[in-house]
Write a protein that binds this DNA or RNA. Structure first.
Length: 192
DNA sequence: TGCCTGATTGCCT
DNA sequence: GGCAATCAGGCAA
């Protein structure tokens, strides 16, 4: 399957966050393949963004953010959950895009199992839920989305399986700094 | 070392 | 709509 070239992740981070909407996020796991169309993202702008984990500079935890674009930055939060970002920009620049939601596509039954048979609407509508449903954990920290073996990768948008949509831009969720910046992008179906 | 907060979720009212 | 769970990181002492 087609996937993004490394150069894709060198565009302005907000632009990437918007462009990733509708892209297919794929994880090949021993239990099977799971995938979903990215429906919600947030841009985090590194040292110029007080809400970013990279704001205070590079540490062991956020090192992946400062690596080259197109890699996975995965973090553990609230003692319970993992969230996944795609890093952006060249080596040394700590920016990235948080994947906050997907529309399940392949491996939905596996997602239901991993999520404890919750209602389908609650399967992948949050950053922690995305990681749990797709079986993404800290072992994928730093994974390269553009180089083989492509165990975890993203394919450019093919919205044919989806309804007509529009992109809604809002402030980011769950932060206490830079709360007004319009850096959250949501794929919203249009009822025709 | 101790305290507080957090890019969240799910259960309870 | 409110709040507990649960722990790693950041900062003050």
């Amino acid at each position: 399957m087609n996937h993004f070239a490394p150069e894709f992740f060198l565009q302005p981070t907000e632009q990437i966050a918007r462009a990733l909407l509708g892209a297919l996020l794929v994880h090949e796991t021993p239990e099977g393949r799971v995938s979903g169309f990215i429906s919600e993202t947030e841009a985090y702008l590194g040292v110029r963004d007080p809400a970013s984990h990279a704001f205070r500079g590079e540490t062991k935890r956020n090192a992946a953010m400062f690596g080259p674009g197109g890699h996975a930055y995965i973090y553990f939060i609230y003692g319970n959950h993992f969230c996944i970002n795609v890093t952006t920009q060249k080596q040394g620049v700590g920016e990235g895009v948080l994947i906050r939601g997907i529309i399940p596509y392949e491996g939905i039954e596996l997602m239901r199992q991993r999520r404890g048979n919750r209602p389908d609407k609650d399967l992948t509508n949050g950053p922690g839920k995305v990681c749990q449903a797709m079986g993404i954990g800290p072992e994928m920290y730093g994974h390269d989305f553009s180089q083989p073996p492509l165990q975890l990768f993203m394919a450019p948008a093919d919205l044919s399986p989806l309804k007509t949509h529009e992109i809604v831009v809002t402030p980011r969720i769950g932060i206490s700094q830079a709360v007004d910046l319009p850096l959250r992008f949501v794929l919203k179906p249009i009822d025709l």
